[in-house]
Design a protein around this nucleic acid. Structure first.
Lengths: 151, 151
DNA sequence: CCTTGACCTAAAGTTAGGTTTAGAAATTAG
DNA sequence: CTAATTTCTAAACCTAACTTTAGGTCAAGG
């Protein structure tokens, strides 16, 4: 095996701890773009180890795959990302994270003053309409309708 | 309509802002237990408005439905919950929330020191193994294997 | 050369949290 | 009493993020 033929998908899986199927899935989602060898098999650069590592970390921070793709899109396409490139990405990620922490903290503070009072059963309660939802995943009640409260 | 025949599912939906289908789904998940009238239709207590309101709030805080069911299970089954009962629930919820905020904060602090360094590509990096994952939803890489790092 | 293990694609299955649909029965309004 | 709402159940559908399966190909060792 020549030095610069790239990593096979199994090797990349070993290095990152991801499942092979997950790596293929990320490719389908546009998060990584391997080339193919003469036999049609995927080959990866060493820099892709770091790229996938970043994907995993960003997921822990609660970003969706489309969001991660967006963040990664600022990386240079024509050359291997430098430490400076990654630093810039880190700043973006931190902003995401700061916002999530802030939202949760505000919710918590509302909770303290609110859980015991009668407003908990009213759609007008502050806890129902924080400007930004936690958005922990794509589900949850689709619409909150402000209806005439009476309880 | 007699005073104490309970709320129909549509009325409960109006009061809480939830979809009728969501309320039935929550019943299937064991979050709420209406009785049936002579015609087989669901009837709810007024206290169920608050119960569902709590479900919605807890979801905003990132709890899963099984977690919410767990939290709600401490409510008395034989009588209408008092403000004290709800207060106790509030304390539990706050504990959950504190832990989430704490986790995210720790992740953020790690990120600051970590994103620029070489360890990002190593499975042994601190960011890979925070003791508690953010667990924003049930997905994500199923297993992180600690393999011989070398990059 | 032959076998074994890694890799390929496409499609279907999985979990969470619901929504939508279809057809039937109950309730309510007039 | 009749028509319009509501409600009922069961099953199918939806998104996100993957995994599993099936059937076939590629690559490496002996």
């Amino acid at each position: 095996m020549a030095v610069s033929e790239g990593l096979a998908i199994g090797a990349l899986a070993q290095r990152t701890g991801l499942a092979v199927s997950a790596i293929r899935y990320y490719e389908a989602q546009g998060l990584i773009s391997p080339w193919r060898n003469s036999g049609g098999q995927r080959r990866y650069q060493r820099a892709d180890i770091r790229r996938l590592s970043f994907v995993m970390i960003a997921q822990q921070f609660g970003l969706t795959l489309p969001e991660i793709r967006e963040v990664l899109s600022v990386l240079p396409g024509n050359r291997t990302p430098t430490p400076q490139d990654w630093k810039a990405i880190g700043v973006q990620l931190r902003a995401h994270l700061d916002q999530r922490i802030d939202t949760l903290t505000r919710l918590r503070d509302n909770l303290d003053g609110c859980i015991g009072c009668g407003c908990l059963s009213l759609p007008k309660c502050a806890l129902y309409n924080p400007d930004d939802r936690v958005k922990s995943n794509g589900s949850g009640p689709r619409y909150l309708m402000g209806d005439t409260p009476e309880a």
